[in-house]
Each structure stands twice: as structure tokens, then as C-alpha cells.
Amino acid sequence: MKYIVKKIITLFVALLLISIIIFVVFSVIPADASIAKLGIDATPEQIAALRAQMGLDKPLFERYFWWLANALQGNFGESFQYTGVKVTTLLARRLGNSALLSLISFIMVVIFSIPIGIFSAKRRSVVARGTMTTITQITMGIPSFFLGLLLTYLFSLVLHWFYVGQFVSPSEDFFGACAYLIFPAIAIALPKIAMTVKFLSNSIRSELHKDYVRTAYAKGSTRDGVLYKHVLKNSMVPVITFLGIIVAEIVAGSVIVEQVFSVPGIGSLLVTAITNRDYPVVEAVVLLIAFFVIVINFIVDMIYQAVDPRVKL
């Protein structure tokens, strides 16, 4: 119970710090929303007028104070780039798409990396191990956006399996949306699968040297019995933590990939909001992502405790 209270406090402190950092960063980088909106040809008078209208002429501290006061009541203000549209409305429209993309990517990581990891750990010959290592190393090294470009070229332009930009929202056609998202999900998931495979197979191999494995053989277990009944669960313990990190990376990684595949998600929203210096939107998106990552961490801790009886939180 105390653990939960502590986690919640951590959550709020982290979100507060992040929101401050974003405000400070936006006041330091050149140009603001008014210039982004009016362009470089605008007269100083026009800019000054718009700045006053947006409230950008007020001191940083004052702006932050009012933003925070509103945010605490759930009001994240209006977007600068889409005048008059509430930030929460903007987010609500796109959150579902991004969540679905992250979910599909994560499911891919789990269902592919665990069996491949086990398969890889079972290989004993030097050649097989070398091959597995080479494949995982190469896959790990490819950046997601580049993989995204390759995939769009192959499946969209050559094979015509899907068309970039023809994304339909899941509320209209859920399965259609999933089918479209499979491709960006592959781009996100593939390097993560490779990492998890490597991590899991290393974990299994190091578990195989433990004393309890010797005991399991001494009891008369078969090789598969030792692996599946004893080793696997033990080797999954560190993998759970690792998967928690992977989830955070998936969420972060989707920012670029959404852009490549023209998925209207919070990632692409973030990218345009940053170019337009639309800090209310940036604040909200980054806080949302941070909130999500911290909650995932919390869930990971819970699972960890459930799997390993030695862990007491």
C-alpha cells in the first residue's frame, strides 16, 4: 500500500518536472508560435498583436502558473496551430490510433521474441549460434524509420498491399485500421524483437548453469522438462523488466514511424506541434507519454512481484 502511495507521488513529481522543462525549453529555443503562424514576412506589429492575443507576452513564470492551474483542473488550453481547437479534443482524436499501434507492436514483440528466444537458446552448435547472433545484431541495428521506408516501398509501391495515407480510423473500421497498422508495427517491433530475443536467450543460457537446473536433471527431468518447467520462468524474471523498457521505447519510437506511414497519431501530432511551437499541445502529448511510461513501470513492478515470490514491494 505504501508502495502505491510512493509511486503516485513519484508520478506527480515527475510530471511536474517534465512540464517545467518543456516550458523552459520552449522559452529558450528561437521563434515562438506567433512567428510560426505568421511566417517570417510578418511585421513586428502583427507579431506583437498575436503574441498578446496568445498570451505569449507575459513572463514565463506567470504563463507557467496559469497553465499549471488550468492543467490541474484538466484544462490543457487551446492549440496555437489549430486556432480554437481544444488540446484535449485534438488528443482524443489521435490517442486511439497511437495506442492501437503501440499495442500491436508490443503484441508482436511478445509473441515472436519468446519462441524465437527459446529456439535460439536451445541451439548448441557454434554455427547455429553464430547465425542467430548475426541475424539479431543486424536487425537490432536498423533504425525504425529506415525500416519503415523499406516497408512502405515494398508493400505499398511494389506489392500494393496497402497505400500510405489511406488510414481509416479504428472507430469506423477496426479491422481495416489494424490491417493498416500492421506495417508500421513491423517497423517498430522488428528491432525490439531482435533485442528481446538476444536478451531472453542470454538469460536462459545463464540460468542453465544454475544449481537448481542440476537438481532438475538429477530428479530425472527431460531436457524440455528442465527448460519449460524450471528454466523458462526463472529466465523470464529479468525479461519482464526489459519488456517494460521496450514498451517505453515503442511509444517513443512510434513518433517517427507514424510520420513515415502517415498515421494520424499523437506522434505525428507532436512532430507538427514542435515545428509550430505549439507548446500547449507539446506539453499535453509529452505529459501523456510520460504518464503512460510511468504507469507501465508500475505495472511491470506488479508483474515482477507476482512472478518472483522473493520480491516484496
Partner: peptide, 12 residues
């Protein structure tokens, strides 16, 4: 074995 602690599976 010598080390009963590590010789038992910690998760079962």
C-alpha cells in the same frame, strides 16, 4: 547437494 538454497528452484 551442498547448497540447498540454490539447488531448489526459487520460483516454485
Amino acid at each position: 547437494f551442498q547448497e540447498p538454497m540454490t539447488s531448489l528452484n526459487p520460483l516454485l
